[in-house]
Design a protein around this nucleic acid. Structure first.
Length: 640
DNA sequence: GATTCCCTAAACAGAA
DNA sequence: ATTCTGTTTAGGGAAT
């Protein structure tokens, strides 16, 4: 996916040299890329693009008319069937003289113009238009132009077929003329032509397809081929004929078949999908007829088009905002290198080396977009162009310091936004085995898991652990045995593993030595998930603060995020204490013997885990409530 | 350079 | 006998 996108971008670049015929490729590819990537342009002016696009189409039509009127170009072959179809088309083409591009632009630019106002305005235009309908004679002229376009289209289509081996054309064979074409354009193709020429046929479609429209192209032929090519995939093969970017072939082909297969964005299930229409059309031909008759370029259609345009625009704005939010989230959660700057030096947590490694491992860039997409894993998430593939990510070998562990970043908050990513992408999670094991355990309903259940959690949560089972399972067992924080408890159904959070926190606290925290907080519960404090700082402070939680004198009110991280870390322990106090009395006696409850106000401690729970274990959410009880046992003797 | 942390590999034993 | 589970040791890489 990512590679494809990248390659395509490259291909497009190279195709730029290929003249107008490659514009369609740029258009399609550009729109796809634009939508899947940063979409910096989408927010800029979708409407403007449409304006320009429509202007372009209108101007092109005009120029075509002028050209033909002056040159007296005649249609190579009159086609009755096509002629009948041309009527509405020609009418539509005449409208540029009725509604000038400037006027059209005005209409379109008036974002605040109400449909009623627009309607009134267009009615005026209509009056003028009626006067000029007598110019219908020019329809024939334009029809000729259409035929020329058809020729180009069909020739390119044939070239496409030739390339596919469906048709064999000897090298010396002269290019096909329209007369020699096996058959005329299908109604769908003609419709496409009309659609493209009018430029307002389907705004949504236009918005999508024209995301990368090069509006700088003004000459008639360029415009014509551009619009035609983007509508009719065969054109893109014209560029292929020129020896360009074969990578686009497949995609184009598929779309080509779709479009020529009597499918239409405005037609489905026997119903015209024009906004507010829903007229029943027996077949595609009838639909086309209906489309030409009922949805020609008139005031009503224009108004509807504009409405649809706004709908699309709103959606794009929304998408843009959501994407921005996602980016911010990822930046916040992954791009530690830029964040830790303000991090208190005493923490001594910043390691450029580690960070860079972490970046390579978990930076948003590496996130597939949605691995779902691979999804990118899902994520679905449409991801911007990424140069880091999952393969390259895990190929870096064993990661010593999992940044989340190192910085005590809540694993949930780390995984949550990338859950689908880790679930689908073969990328090693940036956590130590101990951290993961703990997470698996505390996520469980009763805070205890058998070894096999831990295995399952690993494979279920991370695609990476679906392979090399022997290695990581051994590591899991090794960690369970090695770390005191993991306590084996004999259960009715066998041995289960629990987490001794005191030990766990103790161990982690030891990682941060020589730091006398001056900032420890009183945890404001109201602080939200989106607290601004960067996670690493939060985590560091949180961890550092653990021993001090019981000492009110050392507790200062600071930022929210801090508590968040603290909560997360504490949650596990507290949860563990709470739940296991009953379920597994035998484990880790000390934690139950003297649980010093540092009673903070009930915290929304699970903000970090909520996202995770939403996508992972359904049974996790219900526990959030009990998780909020913070019972930390931060007595100094335990910490040290 | 020493220490620590983490990972990986492997040997081994006991239980299922 | 095989597999699973659990423990332990060893060594290497990376960070501190």
């Amino acid at each position: 996916m990512m590679q494809e996108s990248a390659t395509e971008t490259i291909s497009n670049s190279s195709m730029n040299q290929n003249g107008m015929s490659t514009l369609s490729s740029q258009l399609d590819a550009g729109s796809r890329d634009g939508r899947s990537s940063g979409d910096t342009s989408g927010e800029v002016s979708t409407v403007e693009l449409l304006h320009l696009q429509q202007q372009q189409a209108l101007q092109a039509a005009r120029q075509l008319l002028l050209q033909q009127q002056t040159s007296g170009l005649k249609s190579p072959k009159g086609n009755d069937k096509q002629r009948t179809l041309q009527v509405p088309v020609s009418v539509a083409m005449m409208t540029p003289q009725v509604i000038t591009p400037q006027q059209m632009q005005q209409i379109l630019q008036q974002q605040v113009l109400s449909p009623q106002q627009l309607q009134a305005l267009l009615q005026q235009q209509q009056a003028v238009m009626l006067q000029q309908q007598q110019l219908a004679a020019q329809q024939i002229v334009f029809q000729q132009q259409l035929l020329q376009m058809q020729q180009i289209q069909q020739q390119q289509h044939l070239m496409n077929l030739q390339r596919q081996g469906l048709i064999t054309i000897q090298p010396g064979q002269p290019s096909l003329s329209v007369q020699s074409l096996p058959q005329g354009l299908s109604p769908a193709e003609i419709q496409q032509l009309w659609k493209e020429v009018t430029g307002v046929h389907n705004v949504e479609d236009s918005v999508l397809k024209h995301g990368g429209l090069d509006l700088s192209t003004n000459n008639t032929t360029s415009t014509t081929s551009t619009t035609t090519s983007k509508a009719s995939p065969p054109i893109s093969h014209h560029s292929l004929v020129n020896g360009q970017a074969s990578i686009l072939t497949t995609r184009r082909d598929s779309s080509s078949h779709e479009e020529t297969g009597a499918t239409h964005p405005l037609y489905g299930h026997g119903v015209c999908k024009w906004p507010g229409c829903e007229s029943i059309c027996e077949d595609f031909g009838q639909f086309l007829k209906h489309l030409n008759n009922e949805h020609a370029l008139d005031d009503r259609s224009t108004a509807q088009c504009r409405v649809q345009m706004q709908v699309v625009q709103q959606l794009e704005i929304q998408l843009s905002k959501e994407r921005e939010r996602l980016q911010a989230m990822m930046t916040h959660l992954h791009m530690r290198p830029s964040d830790p700057k303000p991090c208190p030096k005493p923490l001594n947590l910043v390691s450029s080396v580690t960070m860079s490694k972490n970046i390579s491992e978990t930076s948003p860039q590496s996130l597939p977009q949605t691995p779902t997409t691979p999804t990118t894993p899902v994520t679905p998430v449409t991801q911007g162009p990424s140069v880091i593939t999952p393969a390259s990510l895990h190929s870096v070998g064993p990661i010593r310091r999992r940044h989340s562990d190192k910085y005590n970043i809540p694993i949930s908050s780390e995984i949550a936004p990338n859950y689908e990513f880790y679930k689908n992408a073969d990328v090693r999670p940036p956590f130590t085995y101990a951290t993961l094991i703990r997470q698996a355990i505390i996520e469980s309903s009763d805070r205890q898991l058998t070894l096999n259940e831990i295995y399952n959690w690993f494979t279920r949560t991370f695609a990476y652990f679906r392979r090399n089972a022997a290695t990581w399972k051994n590591a899991v067992r090794h960690n369970l045995s090695l770390h005191k924080c993991f306590v084996r408890v004999e259960n009715v159904k066998g041995a289960v593993w629990t987490v001794d959070e005191i030990e766990y926190q103790k161990r982690r606290s030891q990682k941060i030595t020589g730091y006398v925290p001056t900032l420890v907080k009183n945890i404001p519960t109201s602080l939200g998930y989106g607290a601004a404090l960067n996670a690493s700082l939060q985590a560091a402070l949180a961890e550092s603060s653990l021993p001090l939680l019981s000492n009110p004198s050392l507790i200062n009110t600071t930022s929210s995020g801090l508590l968040q991280a603290t909560h997360e870390d504490l949650n596990g322990s507290l949860d563990h204490l709470d739940s296991n106090g009953n379920t597994s009395p035998g484990c880790s006696p000390q934690q139950h013997i003297h649980p010093i409850h540092v009673k903070e106000e009930p915290m929304n401690a699970e903000e970090d885990e909520c996202p995770m729970s939403l996508v992972t274990t359904a049974n996790h959410s219900p526990e959030i409530e009990e998780d909020r009880d913070i019972e930390e046992e931060p007595s100094s003797e335990d910490v040290e």
